[in-house]
Design a protein around this nucleic acid. Structure first.
Length: 569
RNA sequence: UGGGCCGUCGCCAAGCGGUAAGGCAUCGGGUUUUGAUCCCGACAUGCGUAGGUUCGAUCCCUACCGGCCCAGCCA
């Protein structure tokens, strides 16, 4: 797969001219003043679900930073909570990261690789009087923690001796205590205005099997106790995460300061990527899947990486979008229009052109011999000469788009009208004579004439065609199914302010067209190629629904359409 | 309302005391056998608000206003 080359970064990417973002500035300084000699980052997902467009930003940022500064980026699964995780997700996450065009440094890492070290560090904290086993129940702990405006109070178990804590913690590990019976807490400050510093739980008992470590452990470290230390073990220099972890930073630093870690990573936070007209919360995406509003996690309308892949997005368009959106600490919502822009930009450059009639209307060229056929040639791409020419059969009967014919129309209509001319793209100029209708008055066929010698030339009589329309020969084409996708939600912010996002699902987000007529050459379309169906948009084969006999094309995105937006009367 | 963070064009986003980059979108115009692409042009006397410091402030100070995050043995 050509799109998996992690080196395909050069062309078109605005990387060069762009001013540095705040994290790049920090790294540049750190490198300049020698506080670090080399960059190490990491992308640290918990394997508890499918990745979506929001994760793409983190992937792009972490891997991109390493790439730009000649460093390395690890893929580390933050698997400290076995009850929510599954091996299925580690597989899909690895696939998504690679598809986006990145390769992690060395082996895939897991926080669970460090469980023994983490355990020893917890013991170290106990020995230095900085951690204790607390027997308060979860409810009691909540009550003791205080509130946002009131300080918490010390647990009655806070002053246990080191020996007692050591013994209790060993019992926890040995499985001698029940889930919830107690937990290990860091001893920091129950009156801290920062809730995360009010003696956070760092180890809890969970008697469940872990997807990586099996039943080796029945106690698991919390995120806060595992993340920074994992960074330190891996030599991560810049631990980049999202804004909601800002409050955790003092805790992150407290562990690093109070433990003999091999390095001192620093945490930096940026705002997560939000896109309008969609939702990205795992709970909501799951609901869309579970309630059958979409076809699965990889439904082409989903904002998941797998959905976008199936839809036909290019990895580059997603990376470019992340870059275009920028890296700051401002909580914003980016316009999907920007994503559509980077998508079209990439597709326009690389997609071979083709013609496909979505809603066919037959045109009979009455002055064209019944037994005659020709092969028309067309460029593979109008702005590139490195793409092979296409050969398209042409004959007496051709299909054109229903929308491209009107019995009569005003001068703004640049398509086929009775008595007027249009060019069949890459073929003849034709002039319409009559429209044949069925009993209900629907136009079922159009009679027209070709203008002799107009292939590649303007008509000899000087009467130029009004416009250019696409067509497909009736005697030789590929009948196929085409799926048109629109945004999944009709509301800019489907879940803003506690709105019920399900109320805003777009009933027309999927339009299935059958009996579409594509140019014959498309019968050989490979599954990962994206085409521009001229005048319509970009399309790719749906890997799931297509069979050898029945091709299904997904519309990745339509062409920019200034005509469709204006008053066409 | 305790703490943390954030507020520059409709949406992103530069700017770091010397008089508002850029992109997306939008609106004009040109080229074009895709109403696509491409090309030109327009688009913040204004930087959440009010004061203050300064010859000069989006950048410094003060006070307000607005938004986001934190009271999981989730991450």
């Amino acid at each position: 797969m050509s799109e998996n080359k992690p080196t395909d970064r050069s062309e078109g990417t605005p990387t060069q001219a762009r001013p540095l973002n705040f994290i790049e500035k920090i790294i540049t300084e750190d490198l300049a003043n020698g506080s670090v000699s080399r960059i190490q980052t990491r992308f640290p997902p918990e394997p508890n679900g499918y990745l979506h467009i929001g994760h793409a930003k983190s992937i792009w940022l972490n891997f991109g930073l390493a790439e730009r500064f000649g460093g390395q980026c690890n893929l580390r699964f933050d698997d400290t909570n076995p009850v929510k995780e599954d091996e299925e997700y580690v597989a899909s996450i690895k696939k998504d990261v690679q598809w986006l065009g990145y390769q992690w440094s060395g082996e895939v890492k897991f926080s669970s690789n460090y469980f023994e070290q983490l355990y020893q560090w917890a013991v170290h904290l106990i020995q230095t009087g900085k951690a204790y086993v607390d027997h308060l129940s979860a409810d009691e702990m909540r009550a003791y923690r205080g509130t946002l405006t009131e300080p918490g109070k010390d647990s009655p178990h806070r002053q246990r001796s080191v020996d007692e804590n050591l013994a209790l913690f060993a019992q926890m590990r040995a499985g001698e205590l029940d889930e919830g019976a107690c937990a290990l807490r860091a001893k920091i400050d129950m009156a801290s205005p920062n809730m995360h510093l009010r003696d956070p739980v760092i180890y809890r008992i969970r008697k469940v099997a872990h997807h990586q470590t099996g039943d080796q452990w029945c106690i698991y470290p919390s995120y806060d106790f595992a993340h920074g230390q994992g960074d330190a073990i891996e030599g991560v220099t810049h631990s980049v995460c999202t804004l909601e972890f800002e409050d955790h930073r003092p805790l992150y630093e407290w562990f690093i300061a109070n433990l003999p870690t091999p390095s001192t990573p620093r945490q930096y936070e940026f705002s997560r990527l939000n896109v309008n007209y969609t939702v990205t919360s795992k709970r909501k995406l799951k609901q869309l899947v579970d309630e059958g509003h979409v076809d699965g996690w990889d439904d082409p309308r989903m904002p998941t990486i797998s959905g976008m892949r199936r839809r036909g997005f290019t990895p580059k368009s997603i990376r470019d979008f992340c870059e275009l959106a920028g890296v700051t600490k401002v909580n914003g919502i980016v316009d999907v229009g920007m994503l559509e822009f980077t998508l079209r930009e990439d597709l326009n450059k690389h997609a071979p052109r083709a013609m496909c009639v979505l809603q066919p209307l037959k045109v009979v060229l009455t002055n064209y011999p019944e037994d005659k056929t020709e092969i028309m040639t067309a460029p593979g791409h109008p702005q590139r000469d490195d793409m092979p020419l296409r050969n398209m059969p042409f004959g007496r009967e051709v299909w054109i788009e229903k929308d491209d014919f009107r019995e009569e129309a005003n001068k703004k209509y640049k398509r086929l009208v009775i008595g007027k001319r249009v060019r069949l793209r890459n073929a003849y100029v034709i002039e319409a004579d009559a429209a044949l209708k069925d009993d209900a008055g629907n136009i079922v066929e159009v009679h027209a004439r070709i203008i002799e010698n107009s292939v590649g030339n303007d008509p000899a009589d000087g009467v130029k065609p009004k416009g250019v329309i696409h067509w497909v020969a009736a005697h030789d084409n590929l009948t196929c199914e085409v799926r048109l996708y629109d945004r999944l939600f009709t509301d800019v912010a489907p879940d803003a302010g506690g709105k019920d996002f399900l109320q805003h699902i777009n009933p027309d987000s999927l339009d299935i067209l059958t009996g579409c007529k594509a140019e014959a050459g498309l019968a050989a379309a490979p599954p990962d190629e994206r085409y521009q169906f001229e005048r319509q948009g970009y399309f790719t084969l749906d890997a799931q629904y297509s069979t050898a006999e029945h091709k299904v094309f997904n519309r990745v995105i339509g062409l920019r359409d200034t005509w469709g937006k204006m008053d066409q009367s």
